[in-house]
Design a protein around this nucleic acid. Structure first.
Lengths: 341, 341
DNA sequence: TTGTACGCGTTATCAG
DNA sequence: CTGATAACGCGTACAA
């Protein structure tokens, strides 16, 4: 009864116990169609693997085959929130079905090439990362380290990589169009001051502007931090204007900002939607708990995000390369009208 | 000018370009203290690595050294929400500082041993997973595949593994104590009907009961799904009782449920906090946007979660084993009193 | 039908 | 101070 700290079992151990060669173990466990192995032998191998608790060594396999089977998802979950969290499960299942292993790699603190280097060390077959992180140098590094598919996520099309796009402009456009439909004529759109959100805010603003322009209106840009005092100040600033100059329809970037703004408006005695109609984005569960209930643009990915996964898979097996600039999948938007507008 | 699809550069390539042996490259790039290499040679090696875009191959290294440096975090982000998202960054930075690579592995759909097998294939040095997933079989499999540190996360201490604990009882206790301090005597606690939340809900209920008992009170258990109609029904049920039998202080499990309940109460004309005081948990940003503002128990991990990381590190380098049952770190709770109580 | 031998990229040992 | 060489665990062509 040796009490060695039981080194993990290798395929050689399995072979020894089953009384066959290591190659046979490999044939049986991956059941290669080419190799014909006796039924009895297979059973013995399987049994031996079972009793030893054998688990193949992913590193060794990837070193031998030259493919890690790793799909690296490098998204910062926190800010993106709900949307990404929901997508994750589906994405994981879809990749797993095709034999890949989806792994998430935060590293929000590493920038640019440094992050890319960290990713590249794992030799993933694919990297899916927020588009803004995929600088030219980063993409070059990934490509040269053997990554077969580099996909941007979140922002608009990029000239560097294929992307899965959230069309922020459409979100803004949907919201602005809705506010106009509800009879609002003096529109405003919040742009968050927070770095990392601002870019998306500008995209949404641009969409709102386009929709407004098509209807002969303009959109007032309001930069706002996620802070109660700032919100109160913004509301006070509006109230100090002539009534005819105050916005009467506000797209608040997202539901969080919309709720912030709604509380500031109600505190100041501004009626919602009477004086100001409000629309957010994300369709948070909490959006239904405000009074009035919050109108919101719901953003959701196409079911198992099949387009993306299939395209990545094809690129990995080098059937069809991913073209820079290509849009692999587009997140869907829909306006959920409630009482705040 | 060959146009080969540039195979990733290996350390041999670097050696060739620098005109040294491959071993020297290894010495220089990892600067091993033992080996003395000339300054000029080091420079040449570094330069060669740079121009080739050399990135070490993690699989090869881990195969050779027997250590992957991978710390696997197997948490389902979505349900745990905000708390975990915040912790993640700190955890990642802390592990990185010590030379590990934190990687997140969702796989929420795989159960028990199947999930453990998938994790084990990557030969991580440590696995941090929700405690309920770490069954005896799973832990055995992980241990036998060489994982040096297995840590449970989220629920109370486990007899199988060391854990990082969120003390749900304390959360309930804090909330109930606070409600009592505010003069409430007929307490109730929400227990979510959702599978996966219920267990935590029961833990929080138990804590509330303990605190109540110490003050000569009891706590009414209210099972509730996250649904507006159910909330309205619960409120209606309360209102149909004698006034002296209605709860006047409710701990609503978390802020989401508290907001749900608050909207149902206000819809029914029940004053908050006049008739019913309300407390949630998580201190969501949105908790400050309700009127009245929501009292909440804030839950946060000790700064960079130093205890956990240090203990895991020590276990990995086999300095101090992790004892089953041991509590490595305990999430901190604090009550944030606002207007709803 | 099964076993042998080799190589993937790294690191560590040991001889020069 | 530097350069061969072996070994890590696995997959597969080829020999038996």
């Amino acid at each position: 009864m040796t009490d060695t700290p039981t080194r993990p079992a290798t395929s050689v151990d399995v072979a020894r116990l089953a009384g066959v060669s290591q190659a046979t173990v490999s044939y049986v466990l991956n059941d290669r169609p080419g190799a014909r192995v006796g039924e009895e032998t297979r059973r013995r191998v399987r049994e031996a693997a079972e009793t030893l608790g054998y688990v193949p060594h992913a590193s060794a396999r990837s070193l031998r085959t030259g493919r890690s089977g790793l799909v690296l998802l490098a998204l910062s979950v926190a800010p993106t929130g709900r949307l990404v969290a929901g997508i994750l499960d589906d994405l994981e299942a879809a990749f797993r079905e095709r034999g890949y292993t989806l792994v998430q790699y935060g590293e929000r603190r590493l920038r640019g090439v440094t992050a890319a280097r960290a990713w590249a060390e794992l030799r993933p077959v694919a990297v899916i990362a927020e588009t803004y992180r995929l600088t030219e140098a980063a993409v070059r590094l990934l490509r040269s380290s053997g990554v077969r598919a580099v996909v941007g996520f979140g922002e608009g099309p990029s000239p560097l990589v294929a992307t899965s796009v959230i069309d922020h402009a459409e979100i803004g456009s949907l919201a602005a169009g809705h506010l106009h439909d509800r009879g609002r004529r003096r529109l405003a759109a919040i742009v968050p001051k927070e770095e990392g959100l601002r870019k998306m805010g500008l995209g949404r603003l641009r969409g709102a502007e386009r929709a407004a322009e098509a209807r002969g209106l303009t959109v007032e840009r309001v930069d706002l931090a996620f802070d109660e005092d700032e919100a109160a100040a913004a509301v006070a600033a509006w109230r100090s204007r002539d009534p005819g100059e105050r916005p009467d329809g506000v797209f608040a970037y997202n539901d969080d900002y919309a709720m912030l703004l709604m509380s500031a408006l109600l505190d100041a005695g501004v009626a919602v939607p009477g004086d100001v109609a409000l629309a957010g984005c994300d369709d948070l569960p909490q959006a239904r708990f405000t009074r009035p209930r919050l109108t919101s643009v719901r953003v959701e990915s196409p079911p198992p995000d099949a387009g993306l996964v299939a395209a990545v898979d094809a690129a990995i097996r080098q059937e069809r390369p991913l073209n820079p600039g290509e849009v692999l999948s587009r997140v869907q938007c829909a306006l959920i009208a409630r009482d705040s507008s």
